[in-house]
Computed example of a mutant assay.
Amino acid sequence: MADDRVDLINRDPNNINQHVQANFEDVLGEPDGTRSADCVWTYSSKCFEGGKSCCYIFLTAMCGIFLALFWGCEFAIISFEQIWCATPAYRCFSIYAIYVQKCVGTYLSCYLGPICETCGLCFSRIRIEKTG
């Protein structure tokens, strides 16, 4: 059984969502020469971070558990399909493919091989002479 403890500090240990940088400094920036009042910039930062935090907490509270259940079931279905359907089907296909490969190989060596060998012998007698 997997360890039931979750890391409440590092919640993305494999960095799978590192591309989702959504801090104020990552989204908004004023270049030199274009500045708002310091109080506007300060309160904008607080509103951005507060709004983002509240909205994220609300959405995760409303949907997080259900989405985790959905994705858990989705990956269980994918695992089931791979383990019980795709892998055995692929193994069955590969067994039959060996049989087909042997049949095609036998056909080619018995029927097509002598024809190609005969054509090769016939055409090997052709001589090209350069005149002029």
Rank of each mutant, 00 (worst) to 15 (best):
C63M: 13
Y96I: 08
V40N: 11
D3S: 00
A89E: 07
L8V: 06
D26C: 03
D32L: 07
S44G: 15
F123K: 05
F66E: 11
C55H: 12
P114G: 01
K52T: 10
G113W: 08
K130G: 00
V6R: 12
Y96H: 07
S79G: 01
A89W: 08
T87N: 08
N14S: 07
P31A: 08
S94G: 01
E129P: 00
S94T: 13
C54V: 09
M62K: 14
C63S: 04
Q21F: 00
G33K: 01
T42W: 06
G51V: 10
L108M: 10
P88M: 04
V20I: 14
A86S: 10
A89Q: 05
A76T: 07
F24M: 06
A68R: 07
N23A: 04
S45F: 12
I9C: 02
Y96K: 10
W71Y: 13
G51R: 15
S45Y: 11
A22T: 07
W41I: 00
D7C: 10
W84Q: 09
K102W: 08
C73M: 14
I115H: 08
N14V: 01
K52M: 13
A2R: 13
F93T: 10
I95V: 04
N15V: 03
G72W: 03
G51K: 13
S109A: 07
E129D: 06
I95Y: 06
Q82T: 08
F24I: 04
R35G: 00
R125P: 01
I78G: 02
L121A: 11
Q101I: 07
S44P: 00
I16S: 05
L69K: 15
R5G: 02
C92K: 12
A89R: 06
T118C: 09
G120I: 04
D26E: 15
G33Q: 06
A97F: 02
R125V: 01
E81N: 13
L112V: 13
N14C: 05
G132I: 04
R35C: 03
C116W: 12
E30Q: 11
Y111K: 14
C116V: 15
Q18A: 15
Y107T: 11
I9W: 06
K46I: 14
G51T: 14
V40D: 12
D12E: 03
C63T: 10
L8T: 06
V104N: 04
A37M: 15
L69D: 11
C54A: 12
A89S: 12
T106I: 02
F93L: 09
I98G: 01
N15R: 12
E129F: 05
A68G: 09
I78H: 06
L67A: 04
T118V: 01
V100C: 02
I65G: 03
I77L: 10
C55P: 00
A2N: 08
I16T: 13
L59F: 12
N23T: 14
C103W: 14
F70D: 07
R125L: 06
L69P: 00
E117V: 03
R35M: 09
L28E: 03
I115R: 05
R91L: 13
I98Q: 10
